[in-house]
Write a protein that binds this DNA or RNA. Structure first.
Lengths: 339, 339
DNA sequence: CTGAAAGCGCTAACAA
DNA sequence: TTGTTAGCGCTTTCAG
C-alpha cells in the first residue's frame, strides 16, 4: 500500500486504471465525451485510492477558486453573525464557498485580510470595513478582484455597497422617543469615522429638529462598538446634572454595557429611563423588559449581497457601482415609556 | 502598462529587474544569501508592479497552506462565536490563518466541509461536530490531516478533543436548584446524539440522585439547539398537571425560546419558575433578571485548541490522542430562588 | 551570491 | 473517445 504514504493524485488514478491523467480528469469532472464504462472504472479507482482532487492545483490551473472572502469586524456581534450566516447560505446555493475573516475592528488587520484574500485568489470579497482608510487596500485590489461593501460604506469608493438606511432608522427611533415627550436623549455610538455612525447621528439630529429640540441639547457621545464603551458612555451621560430620560444605543454591545451601567445606578427601564437600540439581536426580544428597536432585513440584504458579488465575479454586471440602501422597521416593545 | 492586464507574477518582477525568478523568490522570502542591494531592487520592483505572491502556487509547491479549517454548527451561537474568535486570535499569533465553515448543524454539510477542507489542503482541522457520524469522514482524512475536536467529542474517535466537563457542570447547576428545594426541574436539551447532551443529562441525573429524587421524577426533553425547540420544550414541560418549578436550559438559544414561552404563559422569573443555563453568553448578565449559569473558560479552551492543532500539524506532538476536559464555574445571579 | 531546470497536481488545446 | 503536451506560479536542488 505505497499509495498511503502520500495522498493519491490524479496520476495514481491514471496508472491504476491504465488511462491517461487527462481522461481521468475528464471522467471526474463530468466531461461529456467519456465512455460510460471508462467513467465507472475511474470512479471506482478514485474511491479505492481515496483520491481527493487537489483544489489548489486545480485553482492554479483554471484561475478561479469558487471562493468568496468575507471580512467582518466581530463575529460575536449578532448583526455581523447573522449577516455572515445568510451570506454563506446564499453563496453555497450558488456554488461558492465562503472564507470568513475576523478583523476585530482593527483597520490594520482589516487591510491585511484584504491582501491575504487577494493572495489566495478568492474570486470576490464581501467587506464590512472597520474604517474608511481600509478601503484604500480594497481599492488597489479592486482592479483585479470585485469587492462589495456590506453594512458600512466608504462614500466615494468605486465598488458596490449594501447598507441599511441608517439615517431613516435612527430618526425613527429618536422620533419614537420625542413623541413620548423625551427631550434629553443620550445617544451612544461607536467610532465617528464609520459611515453608519455618521448617518445614525444625522438621523438622530433630524428627529430632534423635527421635535423642536435645539442642537445645543443634543447628547451624542462617541466610542467603540464594545460593551465597555457602552458602559462608559452611559456612565458619562449620567454624570452631569440634567440626567437623560432616554438612551439611544447604536449597537447591541453598547446596549449590554448601558444596561449594566443602569443596573449599577439602580435605574429601572422604562420607569426611570427609556432605552432603544439600532438593530435587533435575538436577546432584545427576550430580555426583560424587551427592547424597542429598529430591525433590519438582514436576510434580504445578505441575499442581495450574494447576488451582487456573484454577478460581479462572473462579469455579468455592468461597470457602474451601485449602492443599495435597505429600510428596516421600528419594533416597539417594553423598554420605552412616556416621561 | 501591459502588466495591468493580468496580475503580476514573479516572472514579471524578474524581468523587470533583470534577475532570475529564483533570485526574486529568495529576495522576497528573506533567504539569507542575497545581496542587500539586489534585495532592495527586487522589493522596489515588486512594489512598483503591485506584485502579490500567488498563495495557491506557493502552497502547491511547498505542500503546506499555513491554514487551519474550523467547522462550527452555528456562528450566531455565542458559545461557538466566542470559541471561533479566540481560536482565530491564537492561530494568528502562531502564523496560521483560519478558514471558518458553518455547518448549520447539518451532518451532511458537516461531512462535506471536512472533505472540502481536505481538498483545499488545510494543514489541520478544528471541528465542532454536529453528530457522531460526521466523525467518519474526519477519521478517513485523519490519516493525512490532523483533526482536533472542540466542545463536542466523538467518544472513540482517534483524535484529540477539547471539551468542557459537561457532567460536572450540569450537576453543579442542578444541585444549585435542588439545594433551593426544587424537585420538578425540566431540562431542555438538544439532540441526544451529541456527547455534550448525553453528559449534561448524566450530570443532571447525578444531582437528582444526590438529592434523593427518584429517576421517575426526572424531566428531560430532547430537541435541537434552536430557539423554537426551546420554546416547544418549555411549552411541553408545562403541559401536564404537575408543573416544573425550575428550568435547566442546556444552551443559549434554548433559553431564548424558554423565556419567550414563559413570558407568554405569564410566568415570572424567579417568582414562578427558576431558570439556569449552561454556558454564559453576554446577554445572560444583562437581561432582567440576570441568569444563573455555568460559565466555561472559553479563552483557555481556545488557546489550548490552537496549541494542540499547531503541535499536531508541525508533528511535534506524539501519537496518542488526548482529551482535555475543562471545568467551568457556577455563576449565581437573579434568576433562581427557593421554591 | 545567482541562474537553470525541474516539478508540485491539475486541465485544456491539439492530435490521433 | 483518448493520449500527448504544455503550462498555471512558485520554490528548490544543483551548478556555477
Amino acid at each position: 500500500m505505497d499509495e498511503d504514504l502520500a495522498v493519491a493524485t490524479i496520476r495514481d488514478v491514471a496508472e491504476h486504471t491504465g488511462l491517461s491523467p487527462a481522461t481521468v480528469s475528464r471522467a471526474l469532472s463530468g466531461h461529456p465525451y467519456v465512455d460510460a464504462q471508462t467513467r465507472t472504472r475511474v470512479l471506482g479507482a478514485a474511491q479505492a485510492l481515496d483520491y481527493r482532487p487537489n483544489a489548489l492545483a486545480r485553482a492554479l490551473r483554471v484561475r478561479q477558486t469558487l471562493t468568496i472572502g468575507l471580512i467582518i469586524p466581530d463575529i460575536r456581534n449578532d448583526f455581523f453573525a447573522e449577516s455572515a450566516t445568510v451570506l454563506q447560505g446564499e453563496l453555497e446555493a450558488r456554488g461558492y464557498r465562503l472564507i470568513l475573516c475576523i478583523s476585530n475592528g482593527d483597520p490594520a488587520s482589516d487591510r491585511n485580510y484584504v491582501q491575504t484574500l487577494a493572495e489566495h485568489r478568492v474570486d470576490g470579497i464581501v467587506h464590512v470595513p472597520c474604517s474608511p482608510e481600509t478601503d484604500h487596500a480594497a481599492q488597489t485590489r479592486g482592479r483585479h478582484i470585485p469587492v462589495v461593501e456590506l453594512l458600512r460604506h466608504t462614500p466615494d469608493a468605486p465598488h458596490d455597497a449594501i447598507v441599511s438606511d441608517d439615517r431613516e432608522g435612527a430618526a425613527a427611533l429618536t422620533r419614537h422617543l420625542t413623541e413620548r415627550g423625551h427631550r434629553r436623549i443620550a445617544m451612544l455610538t461607536g467610532s465617528s469615522a464609520l459611515s453608519t455612525t455618521r448617518y445614525r447621528v444625522e438621523g438622530y439630529r433630524d428627529a430632534l429638529r423635527l421635535a423642536g429640540i435645539p442642537p445645543s441639547e443634543e447628547r451624542v457621545t462617541f466610542g467603540s462598538y464594545g460593551e465597555d464603551s457602552g458602559y462608559a458612555q452611559t456612565r458619562a451621560a449620567f454624570a452631569g446634572d440634567l440626567k437623560p430620560t432616554a438612551i439611544f444605543s447604536s449597537g447591541s454591545p453598547l446596549t449590554s454595557g448601558a444596561m449594566r451601567a443602569l443596573g449599577e445606578m439602580g435605574l429601572k427601564i422604562p420607569r426611570d429611563v427609556s432605552v432603544v437600540g439600532y438593530e435587533d439581536p435575538e436577546w432584545y426580544a427576550v430580555c426583560a423588559p424587551a427592547l424597542t428597536c429598529y430591525s433590519l432585513p438582514l436576510r434580504e440584504m445578505g441575499r442581495v449581497a450574494a447576488e451582487l458579488i456573484v454577478s460581479r465575479v462572473t462579469g455579468e454586471a455592468a461597470a457602474p457601482a451601485v449602492v443599495r440602501r435597505f429600510s428596516g422597521q421600528l419594533i416597539v416593545r417594553a423598554s420605552t415609556a412616556a416621561v
